[in-house]
Design a protein around this nucleic acid. Structure first.
Lengths: 147, 147
DNA sequence: ATCAAATAAATTGCATACAATTAAATCATG
DNA sequence: CATGATTTAATTGTATGCAATTTATTTGAT
């Protein structure tokens, strides 16, 4: 092997994972000013996105949707409950399950939240075709890694 | 507006940012078993990648490379110093600057680290063309957001 | 029916991330 | 050349993330 090239794989610029990691963080940062208006963090926001759609979920299901575990979700859900956007209660069918249900206030928040994607979209403008390509590649990777 | 579609922008499946966020986390998880062998976290690993290439950097430069601030880097660099992979010392030219220099032990670590990318590559197999496309799109976004 | 195995959350411990603030050093301008 | 502005790290405080463990509950095989 050409020794001058041996360590090139360790250069940041030759990594695919690094821009992925950096880009994800930057995107979350783009969300921040808009989410601050709703007093939500990014993780709380995506959790609410699931709740806006599903209305009722248990922690395990939420974790599967969001790729988060109970160590992250438990404190986060307690905060959302404290804000009044969800309720947390044990299932009577199976006491192990904690059922998360969206509240009226939670539903109401959706009216403001619906404006967020467009605001962020202005900061991150890819061509529709590029966005589509990126979307597919990301999910391809995600599915590949979850095997 | 068609009301049945009004809130579709809030569905996780219609988000580009969510798979980005999820994929980045999953990738870091793929690294973990291999980095565990080196007793490095992912963030410590990418920091070492910069050090392997540059040998000497100050905290500000590292932060620019890695998109991290001193709040993250200061404790991380202290850990890398404790492991013996870097030294931390103030510049005599400008005492505000903290100069990070890689040590012998740090250089030595590169021998094991150089095997990591291939191992991770096996878990994340995109076609070279796809990887190239993804790489370009991610950097396009990163550069756009840093304006 | 009983009890070991499995399941679901919660807890614990550690390591980021990052905004905001602070402290020290240097610069720049009158 | 004095001092206010700027720059660089460090610190503080809050919120993740996740592995590993614990606790409570339920399931399932005998």
């Amino acid at each position: 092997m050409d020794n001058s090239k041996k360590y090139d794989v360790l250069k940041l610029e030759n990594q695919l994972c690094f821009p992925l990691y950096a880009c994800a963080k930057e995107v979350v940062r783009q969300y921040k000013p808009f989410l601050d208006e709703l007093e939500l963090t990014y993780t709380q926001y995506i959790t609410m996105m699931v709740m806006w759609e599903k209305k009722e979920m248990n922690v395990k299901e939420l974790g599967e949707c969001l790729y988060l575990d109970s160590g992250t979700l438990t404190p986060l859900l307690k905060k959302l409950e404290a804000k009044g956007y969800i309720t947390r209660s044990r299932s009577s069918k199976d006491e192990r399950n904690l059922i998360i249900v969206i509240t009226e206030a939670g539903e109401k928040l959706k009216e403001e939240a619906v404006l967020v994607p467009a605001k962020v979209g202005k900061c991150i403008s890819l061509e529709p075709q590029e966005a589509q390509t990126l979307y597919k590649l990301l999910y391809k990777m995600i599915h590949q890694m979850n095997e």
